[in-house]
Amino acid sequence: MLKALTKKETYIRYLKSLKFSLYCMTHPLDGFWDLTHEKRGTYAAANTILIITLITRILKLRFTSFLFIQVYWEDINIFLYLASILFPLALWVVGNWGLTTLFDGKGRLGQVYMATCYGMAPYPIIQIPLMIVSNFVTIEEGQFYSVLSMISLIYCALLIVAAMGQIHDYSFGKNILFTIASLFAMLIMVFILMIFFSMVSQGVAYFVSLARELMFRI
């Protein structure tokens, strides 16, 4: 495994797969088919895109002009802020895979993850230049900011939906149906997680109070 890191081919393949995300952006159907079926994507590239997306999201807070984003630093928790991407991502990947694997989906769990990460590529590609340009405009000229920002998110969403259709080899209608179903699956998982955590905390509280009571008596 580590030996592969010393080989030059590994890096060439990594860079090539990273560059392939650009092809996926402009040719989503063709690109995402090749991503898994022709094995042109790598996990390394997917992780890189995810990390760049996370970094962009943090950099945005600091380096966007205050005209567009006002940050109340006292309330910012960087980990929670990152979790706002990572947690839905995890839910989406698990929810989508869990459903599609029961209904003839060709994609495996890792492939769902990889395709979703590739689908997030437009976010840093649009947001980073936007962040820089935002410092050179006035508020009147700033209309484009919210529009482009919105476009980057919609672009990502469309890419991810298209990617799911391709890696699972679904028709258009089936793809839309399972996208919506996955969103519901995410909701259900959140619900179950909340119940789980509240039950665990109550269970712990029960034993803690039991122990307190015992210590008090003895």
């Binding site: 205050f66 006035t138 508020i139």
Partner: peptide, 18 residues
């Protein structure tokens, strides 16, 4: 202006500065 988030006055000053 930036210290106190006054975006309109900031924009006015910035337009001139630019």
């Amino acid at each position: 202006f930036e210290l106190k988030y006054d975006d309109e006055n900031y924009s006015r000053a910035f337009a001139q500065y630019r």
